[in-house]
């Protein structure tokens, strides 16, 4: 009993009871509630932000896949267009080549024809000159003019014979 009397002082007990209750009610209202509320709010905010980050990540992933698909499609289209252009180019090149070849052939043939005509003309002129020259030679030799057509034909035959002989030789 002495121990209780010495150590338990009623005034101190009552003041201590009141003091703790004042501290408790004060801190509950002014410290614990605001701090715990702000912790909870921060937790909720962080959770929400993490969720929004996850959603954004998913969205980005979906967009990435979509872009990759679009890019692949665009590349495919570009490749096919390039292919088409190459084919077109080859076709045009072929056509130009064929046309040029045909034109060259035509020019060649025409030139050939012109050349033949010119050769024939030249041959005719040459024959005539040879005949005239032969007649002049013969005239001089025979001192007479061989104007008769029959004689002229004979001389032409002789010249043709000479030419033929020359050709065969």
């Amino acid at each position: 009993m002495e121990f209780f009397k010495a150590n338990l002082i009623p005034a101190e007990i009552i003041v201590q009871l009141l003091a703790f209750m004042i501290v408790f009610f004060t801190l509950r209202k002014l410290a614990w509630k605001p701090i715990l509320d702000s912790l909870e709010a921060r937790r909720a905010k962080i959770r929400q932000e993490f969720e929004s980050i996850e959603a954004a990540k998913r969205e980005i992933e979906a967009l990435k896949t979509e872009y990759a698909a679009r890019l692949a499609k665009i590349e495919e289209e570009a490749r096919s267009k390039v292919q088409e252009a190459v084919e077109e180019g080859r076709k045009i090149s072929r056509d130009i080549q064929e046309k040029a070849r045909a034109e060259a052939q035509a020019v060649f043939e025409k030139t050939q024809q012109n050349l033949d005509i010119e050769i024939s003309k030249a041959q005719m002129v040459l024959k005539k000159s040879v005949v005239e020259l032969s007649l002049q030679v013969a005239e001089k030799v025979l001192n007479e003019h061989l104007t008769d057509t029959k004689q002229q034909e004979k001389i032409e035959k002789i010249i043709a014979g000479i030419e033929e002989g020359a050709t065969l030789s």
Binding site: A11, E12, V15, Q16, A19, F20, I22, V23, T26, L27, L30, A31, W32, P34, I35
Partner: peptide, 20 residues
């Protein structure tokens, strides 16, 4: 003892409210 306990109570109130 009461004085020191009340001082402790005041200190806690001050620190906690300041932190809040």
């Amino acid at each position: 003892t009461l004085f020191f306990s009340l001082f402790a109570a005041g200190l806690i109130c001050f620190l906690c409210i300041r932190a809040a």
